[in-house]
Amino acid sequence: MKVSMKLLVVGVALMSAILGGCEKKEHNHHQNSHTDNLVLLGTSYTDEGSMKISLYSTDSLYSRYTNLFIEVRDSATDAVIEDAEITIMPMMEMPTMMHSAPFEDPNSTSAVNGLFPCAVVFQMPGDMGWSLTVNAHEHVNGGMGEVTFPLMVKNPAPTRTRVVTPINDPASRLVISYVQPLNPKVGINDFEITLHSRETMLSWPGIENYTVEIEPEMPSMGHGSPNNVNPTYTADGHYKGQVNFTMTGLWRINLNIMDGSTVVDSTAYFEVTLQ
């Protein structure tokens, strides 16, 4: 009886150890999985507030509309903090001047899978000069602080953001950036761009309620595609529509951007290649 009791105790202990081990393993796995397909751009401790902040993206950085993901951890326990107010500020420092860039702060204080998604339009490339300052106020311990990541932004091929001088306002600048389709296919594709204007060097707000017309064409053939849906304003300078491709190959999506009936720009285009 005693023996069997002992065995039972040992058995239960073993079982719980095994189960516990399994659970822990799964938990760890779960913790990492949300960054598995992302590229880590940097990790740094905040100046104050005891946070360790990591910056991720889906790829290394190019001058284009870029989704960024911010992870906040308690610097003491390394626990992921999922409730925080995050703001970001991209900055380009050049020898003679500095300017910011269009950006989108995380739109919620709750993390999505442990990450705070945000976006920046890097309107020009730069091996040095670009930085992103992340300001965090976490709601678990109440810590506040910020961190700055130096960034390297490469020039993508094909071009994915264009800075043009508006016909109707030569003093300003219009930033047109390609958002999707990222994997264009023959058929109907969601098409999305962003429009931002330069108010000041440090302020690049999204533009509301412009009219955007698109006209896809195959430059080497001279033909287009039918039934495209012109992008319309959704939020934060985003315009969504549909672009249709009838075959693989190189397509050029010509843009005509208007403020009401006033043409703002009709020179910009984006090229996509369907394999």
Partner: peptide
Amino acid sequence: EMTMYPNNEAPMFM
């Protein structure tokens, strides 16, 4: 199938 081969560009297939 139809595949066209422009110079220095991806083939056009449909």
